[in-house]
Each structure stands twice: as structure tokens, then as C-alpha cells.
């Protein structure tokens, strides 16, 4: 049953999703494209692009992958698999958090996980570039976007996304 496989894959993924769904991008690609062959590189980057262009939390890329694999039931199975385990855990844990927080091992994990999350997000970026097979024009857009986003903090990303869509439509990328 593909729905059960889908659900279980995302349950497993949710346990390593430090840094949220964004940091999960490389692993999503490995599981969905390389391992299960549920879709090809192009479709994967398209789904990522759609998730970027839609409002909502980052986890929506998981919903889209589920949809592509098994329609509406797939979308729900993937989203639930991703959200449910940690929601339940946090529901049970939150009242005890006061006692856990601030302890040395807890601080150590928080500090230790940050450099890993940076590496995961950087890997996700290189992976999208590879999977989409960017040429010079697209790389220029990548660089300009990163620069503008870092330099002008109040510039809404939606403007960048819209510009990217138009540049894409003009066939220059």
C-alpha cells in the first residue's frame, strides 16, 4: 500500500526534521526521487517552486509531494505523517519543559544542532540548483535573490518570487 509507505516515510522524516521542513529538502529528494522513484528531478523542483509561491508554512512541500504520489489521500497521509508525531510529543512534553529547559545537555543540543541545520539548508539549495540544471541566467537570479534578501531585510520575498516568475516566462533562464 503506497499510502502506508508514504505515511511511514514521513513519520520517520519528522524525527530528523531539525530546522523544520526547509532543512529536510535534501532528504526529501533522496527518499522521493532517488530511493522510491516516485517522481523525477524536474517534478521535484517544480513542486518546490509551487510551495515557495504559495502562502503557508514550509511543510506544504510535503503536502505537494504526497499529492503527486497518491492524490488527495497521499497529500493528507504525507502531511499527517510529517506533523503528527511531534505534535503528540510536544503535547505530552510541554508541561515538563520548564524543568528541562536551561539544563546543560539541552543547551548543548540546541547549540550543536544549529551548524547542522545550516549545512542541511545549504545542501538543499545546491540540490535544487542541481536538480533544476540551472544555467548561467538562472544562477544570476540565484545570486541576485540571495544578495537582495540579505541586503534589504524589509523587501517582501513575494516581490522576488514574482520577478523570478516573470524572468522565467521571458525564457531567459
Amino acid at each position: 500500500m503506497i499510502l502506508i509507505t508514504l505515511f511511514l516515510e514521513f513519520v520517520l522524516l519528522s524525527f530528523v526534521a531539525f530546522g523544520g521542513a526547509t532543512a529536510l529538502l535534501p532528504e526529501l529528494h533522496r527518499v522521493v526521487v532517488d530511493h522510491h522513484h516516485w517522481m523525477d528531478d524536474t517534478t521535484f523542483t517544480h513542486l518546490y517552486a509551487i510551495a515557495q509561491a504559495a502562502p503557508g508554512p514550509n511543510v506544504l512541500v510535503v503536502t505537494l509531494i504526497g499529492w503527486e504520489v497518491a492524490g488527495l489521500p497521499g497529500a493528507l497521509a504525507a502531511t499527517l505523517g510529517m506533523c503528527l508525531p511531534m505534535s503528540v510529543l510536544i503535547y505530552l512534553l510541554m508541561d515538563r519543559w520548564e524543568r528541562l529547559s536551561g539544563q546543560r545537555w539541552q543547551q548543548a543540543i540546541s547549540l550543536g544542532v544549529a551548524p547542522l541545520a545550516v549545512g542541511l539548508i545549504f545542501s538543499g539549495a545546491t540540490l535544487i540548483a542541481q536538480a533544476a540544471d540551472f544555467r548561467l541566467g538562472a544562477w544570476l537570479v540565484v545570486l541576485a535573490t540571495a544578495f537582495l534578501n540579505l541586503r534589504y531585510k524589509t523587501l517582501h520575498p513575494l516581490w522576488l518570487i514574482a520577478t523570478g516568475a516573470l524572468l522565467g516566462l521571458s525564457g531567459q533562464l
Binding site: 523542483t45 517544480h46 518546490y48 517552486a49 509551487i50 515557495q52 509561491a53 539549495a125 535544487i128 540548483a129 533544476a132 540551472f134 538562472a138 544562477w139 537570479v141 540565484v142 535573490t145 520575498p157 522576488l160 518570487i161 520577478t163 523570478g164 516568475a165 516573470l166 524572468l167 522565467g168 516566462l169 533562464l173
Partner: peptide, 8 residues
Amino acid sequence: RGVAAVGC
């Protein structure tokens, strides 16, 4: 493709 480049 353009949106993916911006996302990247």
C-alpha cells in the same frame, strides 16, 4: 524554473 531559482 524562474521561481525555483528565486527559491534557491
